[in-house]
Nucleic acid binder design. Structure first.
Lengths: 337, 337
DNA sequence: ACTTGGCACTCGGGAACACAGAGTGCTAGA
DNA sequence: TCTAGCACTCTGTGTTCCCGAGTGCCAAGT
């Protein structure tokens, strides 16, 4: 049904359309890519491709434009991910290596990705659930308040002020801290709730109310931050592009953490480091936009996702190359620290 | 030169133009605002106003549009800041009260302001320089690494991993921590450098290399974060508006911390809680946009600035009311915690 | 059975044009 | 000093026309 030449025609249409942003006609196509056949033949193939829903024409007597289905076939079978140039790779490496803390890593990553792809980049903060506890700290602030600080192996720090039910001297706080650390140090965050379940019983009765208060805040912190923070950059790159769904909707989605999270997608596939490409209407909310995303994190320890968002008419091979490369580098950086 | 009626005409022009986004003509103006005079008279006044540069016409035989100078006069002398409704105030209060930590306060504030004004809101994180040290914490991570955590009275937490020049046991770390806290607790951040100047000399010789390393990182943290973080929200509100300078430039400025900082402006005036309004070409970088900003923070303790950015054609009275109100509430919240 | 050249057809987009309407400036009179 | 009237100048819109790119189809060629 779809012989090699038809596929070549489809590929040529996608490439031309992406680079020119104009519907591509049979004549120009036969010339620019040396297909060795006449425009008429190309027309026949185009008719077949249109029949099958891979391309469409905006109106009669206009050239053809790929449909979502056409882009899908292109991405799946007709294109190869384009690796970055050496210069680009070195630039990434040095730029990311300069980061001083986790916040900085994420900020740099998202900017880098936006600049590299000239699209909007989106990066999810590393998820807590897969991290482990490196240290729990209790800092007395006044006689009825302590600050709870939770440090994870990814360098993330969570802090909360806890109002205590009773006045408590520093020594007892110190003791509680020691117990907590003995109990949790190095454990996965997901296991914290069960590890803490019987903790109050192992404490002297007088400490239990205070401990209960602190523990509840600690657990709350874990739960609340489960839905992780997401940041984006490169919104300026949207200025030129035209979206089916309107620029306003895209900008709104970008500021809505929940929507953005859905768009990035869960690590659905078995191989979380595989690139996910969602094209146009394949997207849950924002039809008319495409998303190229992947998980990042070191080896078996997947941390979170990152990717870019752009118009359906996007240079997929290049974008995929950039996303993959950045994900790898940031994984390295995080693993090293 | 500018009698009362001319001023009334200018006010009417600004109000009409802001609400309709169309050049306003003499006839419509004489009708809608009961000026008790004929269109012809209005025309004469308009001619005078145009002569003085307060208004302009896009082309012959079109209505008039305020110039930057016209808006300036309007803001300075012709308008009153419009207070928020009771419902809005209650909404603000409950929304801000729900914040759990400093990040949350800032995030909520910026979103709130964006929604209230239907413009882009910008909020600078509270500056460190004016805060005081609440606690310094040193957490051993491994035998040659400690995490330095700095907690300020505004609830801000800064952390850094420090690589030590030699292996050091926990006891000495604990001692150093005690010394640091004794030295710094409650002190203003600005005074930290001088307070620490002679600290190494007061320590046993063996501890000095380690102390020096830690101190240098601590000082670095203070300096680096002096230029504070800035966040924005409500970019979607830009979608409708048209900017003289192009949407792209505005979006780029929003993502550039430094530019944004300049736009918000330093607390230039003597009264930092006064509203600053910069109109169109009065802005340093982004001509064609207006900015309404103010300092926030409790009483004499100014923390940082917040404001909104929008097209020159903006409802200044309402915007100013919203900015002022939000600044007050967030100041309250921060003072309470 | 494909491929190719030819040909009629369709439709969008630009140029030329007319025209209604809004708004102005000016002048003369109240 | 204000007002009414009037001629003038624009923009924006709707109409028409036409060019050209691009198509679909058909018949002939390989």
């Amino acid at each position: 049904m779809l012989d090699d030449r038809k596929l070549a025609v489809l590929r040529a249409i996608v490439e031309d359309y992406v680079s020119t942003n104009e519907p591509v006609g049979s004549k120009a196509l036969a010339e620019r890519h040396n297909l060795k056949v006449s425009p008429a033949t190309v027309r026949n193939d185009m008719a077949a491709l249109e029949e099958d829903g891979y391309i469409t024409q905006p109106h009669t007597s206009a050239g053809r434009v790929p449909t979502d289905k056409g882009y899908r076939l292109f991405v799946d079978r007709l294109s190869q991910i384009k690796p970055l140039s050496g210069a680009e790779r070195r630039a990434i490496e040095t730029f990311l290596a300069g980061a001083v803390d986790l916040d900085d890593v994420v900020t740099r990553t998202v900017r880098l990705l936006a600049q590299l792809t000239r699209q909007v980049a989106v990066v999810q903060y590393p998820t807590l659930t897969r991290s482990t506890v490196r240290h729990v700290e209790l800092v007395p602030l006044s006689d009825r308040r302590v600050m709870l600080v939770l440090i994870t192996n990814t360098g993330r720090v969570e802090q909360r002020v806890v109002e205590l039910p009773e006045v408590i001297e520093d020594l007892r706080i110190a003791h509680l801290r020691a117990v907590l650390n003995a109990c949790l140090d190095g454990c996965g965050l997901a296991t914290v709730p069960e590890l803490l379940a019987d903790l109050p019983e192992r404490l002297p009765a007088e400490d239990r109310p205070v401990a209960a208060t602190i523990l509840s805040v600690l657990l709350e912190t874990l739960v609340e931050r489960h839905d992780e923070k997401i940041v984006f950059a490169g919104a300026a790159n949207l200025a030129g592009a035209d979206f089916a769904t309107g620029l306003r909707d895209v900008l709104e989605a970008l500021e809505e953490q929940v929507v953005l999270m859905r768009l990035l997608g869960e690590t659905s596939s078995d191989i979380p480091t595989a690139l996910t490409v969602r094209i146009g209407s394949e997207n849950p909310y924002l039809h008319g936009t495409s998303i190229v995303a992947t998980g990042y994190g070191s080896g078996d320890n997947q941390l979170a996702r990152l990717g870019v968002l752009g118009p359906t008419r996007m240079d997929y091979p290049v974008t995929m190359g950039a996303v993959r490369a950045v994900a790898r580098y940031v994984s390295q950086i995080l693993a090293a620290s």
